[in-house]
């Protein structure tokens, strides 16, 4: 008697067209543009671009990496079991030392495998971020400027100022030395080298040179970075990424 009767399946999702039609009818508007639900990609990509913005919001003309956005993203990546690895792409001119070190420390202490790729430039505070990844790559033409920390603007000339800056300097040096193959003395020497930068002290490392001094692991590009990431993922994944 009730053979033809089919109860509405509450689990069956309404078709998108039906939903749109109903919203137009009932609410007089169309559905918002929904971002499609994606399968989480196995590798995520974090770009560290422009100035690394710290405690001060930079004028809107500056392209900045905002650490308060980056850090929760790193937390989300670390917690998401579907995300197997993170590729950090650097093209930065440096920036706030505290924000830069914060990002570097977060990257360093992540369990998710990380690979960094320096493209274009990874200057100043970009160096600790580059070495913080499990494996670091630099493209052939990319440059990294290693130079001392300094204050701009009014500097009160007391010995304490120098000592304070030296202490800040040591934080960066210690971090880089701990997480790369470079020796402390060699790094300090590069930082204070004269004659290579116009009106400034420091060293510019181009591609291969950064690898030779032990700052970066390898010269490479996108394919080698992704290949390395797959390799880092393999042990826990039992076969790697398909």
């Amino acid at each position: 008697m009730f053979e033809d009767y089919e109860p509405a399946d509450p689990d069956e999702p309404a078709s998108p067209e039906k939903v749109t039609m109903e919203t137009i009818k009932e609410l007089g508007q169309i559905a918002p543009p929904q971002a499609p639900e994606f399968e989480a990609q196995p590798f995520h990509c974090l770009s560290i671009i422009g100035q690394i913005e710290g405690h001060m919001v930079l004028p809107p003309r500056n392209k900045t990496t905002k650490y308060e956005h980056v850090i929760p993203q790193l937390v989300a990546i670390e917690q998401n079991p579907k995300i197997k690895g993170l590729l950090v792409v650097l093209n930065t001119v440096g920036g706030d030392i505290e924000a830069g070190l914060a990002i570097a420390e977060m990257l360093k202490t992540m369990q998710t495998p990380t690979v960094s790729l320096v493209l274009g430039g990874g200057h100043s505070i970009g160096a600790p971020i580059a070495v913080a990844a499990d494996y670091s790559l630099i493209s052939e033409t990319a440059t990294m400027t290693i130079h001392p920390i300094r204050l701009s603007g009014l500097v009160i000339g007391v010995p304490q100022t120098y000592e304070y800056l030296d202490k800040m300097q040591d934080r960066v040096i210690r971090f880089i030395v701990q997480h790369s193959r470079i020796e402390k003395e060699a790094l300090r020497d590069m930082m204070f080298r004269t004659g290579e930068l116009v009106r400034d002290v420091g060293t510019v490392l181009v591609g291969e040179e950064a690898v030779r001094v032990g700052l970066i692991n390898e010269v490479g590009g996108l394919a080698s970075a992704l290949a390395r990431l797959s390799q880092l993922v393999q042990p826990e994944n039992g076969g790697g990424i398909q």
């Binding site: 918002p32 971002a35 995520h44 990509c45």
Partner: peptide
């Protein structure tokens, strides 16, 4: 666009310059 998921960078309405409607939010 602020996301680490590379898939989102391929979505047309997420591209810088594209216009989205806020009325529905």
């Amino acid at each position: 666009l602020h996301s680490t998921d590379p898939e989102y960078y391929l979505v047309a309405h997420c591209q810088p310059g594209s216009i989205i409607h806020l009325g529905e939010f």
